[in-house]
């Protein structure tokens, strides 16, 4: 069948038509010239067909040409939109940090005046640092995850870091006793999500990019605990199998920024005064 396809590129209909004419005794080779009564009409038909073909081709080319820049324009507009919205978000975040700092300072001034206020302030500070709302500093671990270099044959990159790799690392760090964790400088709070949207990984709905730096402040044995954990070993096997990058370093002094905290709208705090033991939890 393939051979037939490759050899017989000319429509067999032409051959047959020529055969028929020869059989009709029309003579040897005049057939290419429309010599019958309908010849003129046939020429016009051919011309009409070619007219259609020309029109069709032009329309398609015009269509493709006009749709390509449109798509590029749309894409550019979306990129600009994203940049603008991100800048606006950053600005709001900054403003929030400023206002929060003002509030903290004002609160401190008011509360330090009385002993009762001082006690309340201590409790508040403990609660806030437990919730990840204050900047912290301490010894800990820096885990860097890097995407494997893209394969040469345009195939799927199996060594890409996924959201669940980062989730696993973070969970393992918490389990190993981490007290504060940040991804690419973004502090994890009580309601922080780590998830992927398309190709991007979002931490609290803000994109983080390769290489992914996960910093955790915690006890000294976190290093060994993490490397010997199931997650640590799985990741090490991924490094061997898929070529992704895993770098774990103990660090004497890590500085983590404050998180944004959870905005409570439905949940109402209960018994702030009563639960004095609550603030002890790391």
């Amino acid at each position: 069948m393939l051979r037939k396809l490759l050899d017989e590129t000319l429509d067999p209909g032409y051959e047959e038509a020529a055969e028929r004419r020869r059989a009709a005794g029309d003579g040897s080779n005049k057939s290419s010239k429309p010599n019958q009564a309908g010849g003129w009409l046939r020429g016009v038909l051919v011309a009409v067909c070619l007219l259609l073909i020309g029109g069709l081709g032009t329309v398609v080319v015009a269509q493709v040409r006009s749709s390509a820049p449109q798509r590029a324009e749309l894409r550019q507009a979306l990129i600009v939109d994203i940049a603008e919205q991100r800048a606006a978000g950053d600005l709001l975040q900054q403003r929030l940090a400023e206002v929060r700092e003002q509030a903290t300072r004002a609160r401190e001034q008011l509360l330090t005046a009385t002993t009762q206020g001082q006690r309340a302030l201590d409790e508040l500070v403990r609660a806030e640092s437990a919730a990840g709302l204050t900047a912290v500093r301490g010894p800990g671990l820096a885990v860097t995850l890097t995407d494997a270099p893209p394969p040469k044959d345009d195939g799927e990159n199996l060594g890409r870091i996924l959201d669940r790799d980062i989730q696993a690392v973070v969970n393992e760090l918490w389990a190993a006793g981490a007290e504060a964790v940040a991804i690419d400088g973004q502090r994890l709070g009580p309601t922080t999500s780590i998830r992927s949207a398309g190709q991007a990984i979002l931490v609290d709905f803000r994109p983080v990019t390769n290489p992914y730096l996960i910093e955790a402040i915690g006890p000294a044995d976190m290093f060994d605990d993490f490397l010997q954990s199931g997650t640590g070993r799985t990741l090490a096997s991924y490094v061997a199998a898929f070529g992704l990058g895993l770098d774990v370093r103990a660090n004497d002094q890590l500085d983590l920024l404050p998180g944004t905290g959870a905005g409570l709208s439905q949940a109402e705090p209960v018994g702030l005064r009563a639960g004095s033991g609550r603030g002890d939890a790391p």
Binding site: D11, Y14, A17, S32, P34, L45, C49, I53, G57
Partner: peptide, 25 residues
């Protein structure tokens, strides 16, 4: 359509062009 056109041109050069075959094809 391009296939039909090239087929037609070739048939013409082969001397066996036929308008009906061309239009129908």
């Amino acid at each position: 359509a391009l296939d039909a056109v090239f087929g037609g041109i070739r048939a013409r050069l082969d001397g066996i062009f036929d308008a009906k075959v061309f239009v129908v094809s």
